[in-house]
Design a protein around this nucleic acid. Structure first.
Length: 336
DNA sequence: ATAGGGTTAG
């Protein structure tokens, strides 16, 4: 559904020409309106289709439930849900997943838990998407241990975690400073044939940086290259910036986050020279640095007493069409 | 012509 308004016009044309739009047509438009946050129009069309004798099915209900849920209209969600059940249309795994996800994102973890249990009661089995939403919700309400339990529960039930699951868990665990645990999950991920991308590698690097284990960061970078193209073709390189070059060429590519994480880690671990080399590498890479990157570099230039260089870099920001934010002004004011 | 999920940096 690329253009809802056009679709609505089509709907009206059909009716003028004595063609009856069917359930698929209505569901598609209602779904499109919901994605456009035109919830009133969607609800009206929903009523209208019923008046015209077109009976909504599980997809129509799920679409409109998604629409009201995403706007936090829980009363409406509940009544649509109740309605469909009363009409003998069973909510399926998608219906439940959408509601659980929306509830979690709104911080209503307990309500989500109730639904998670309700679906089992109704004989609807959660799938990988349901688990991911629920695991994410638990992580965001500081119940990471419980989330880990759910992770093993899903494996026990024969539902394979995918790259979404690992992104959620590895990211959280790294931030908690338990990088060893994250590394174990990473190993499990590889063992289960789930392919890590740039984000997982960046998150792991961040985890090791936080623990000041810069040797391990280099290993992560190395495995990023190796895993993609096979051990035999890769030189055993130890220098971070050489590894970055390799990654750029053959691995999941480093992005601006990867670089910023690395820069920050190197600065914090007294590798000023190496950090500056990585920074140059980044500029040559054609990657668009952002204000966070410059922030890190300028801050550390100041700390190393290279005030002239810091000033020069700061002055160059407008020519790179980068907008300064509060943090960078604070750094500049503090140091000059 | 119809419905669902995630993530990394100062």
């Amino acid at each position: 559904m690329r253009n809802v308004n056009q679709a609505i016009k089509l709907l009206q044309d059909m009716e003028k020409g004595n063609h009856k739009p069917g359930i698929v047509m209505y569901s598609a438009i209602i779904g499109g309106l919901c994605k456009d946050e035109q919830i009133d129009t969607a609800q009206n069309l929903f009523k209208e289709m019923i008046c015209k004798g077109v009976v909504p099915d599980v997809i129509t209900y799920t679409s409109i439930i998604r629409g009201v849920c995403s706007l936090g209209m829980w009363k409406d969600a509940e009544s649509y849900f109740q309605n469909m059940v009363n009409f003998g249309i069973s909510p399926n795994v998608v219906t439940f997943s959408i509601m659980i996800d929306a509830l979690c994102k709104d911080g209503k973890t307990e309500k989500a838990q109730t639904l998670f249990q309700l679906m089992s009661t109704r004989g609807v089995q959660p799938d990988v998407v349901t688990y991911n939403s629920w695991i994410d919700g638990l992580c965001n309400s500081d119940q990471r241990e419980e989330a880990t339990k759910l992770f093993y529960q899903m494996i026990g039930r024969g539902i394979s975690p995918d790259v979404f699951t690992f992104n959620i868990l590895i990211g959280v665990i790294c931030k908690e400073g338990m990088v060893e645990k994250a590394q174990k999950l990473f190993d499990l991920m590889i063992q289960r044939g789930v392919k890590p991308g740039t984000i997982i590698y960046s998150a792991l690097m961040n985890g090791y940086c936080l623990q000041n284990q810069m040797d391990e960061v280099t290993k992560v970078l190395h495995s990023m290259v190796v895993r993609r193209c096979g051990l035999c073709n890769v030189r055993r390189v130890t220098k971070v910036q050489e590894l970055l070059k390799e990654m750029q060429a053959r691995g999941p590519s480093p992005n601006v986050y990867t670089y910023s994480i690395l820069l920050n880690g190197l600065f914090k671990n007294d590798s000023y020279e190496e950090a500056m080399r990585v920074f140059e590498e980044m500029e040559n890479d054609g990657l668009k640095e952002n204000i966070v990157t410059y922030n890190t570099v300028i801050d550390n230039m100041c700390k190393a007493n290279n005030l002239d260089e810091a000033n020069k870099l700061f002055d160059s920001l407008p020519s790179k069409s980068l907008k300064c934010d509060t943090m960078i002004f604070n750094i500049m004011i503090k140091n000059f």
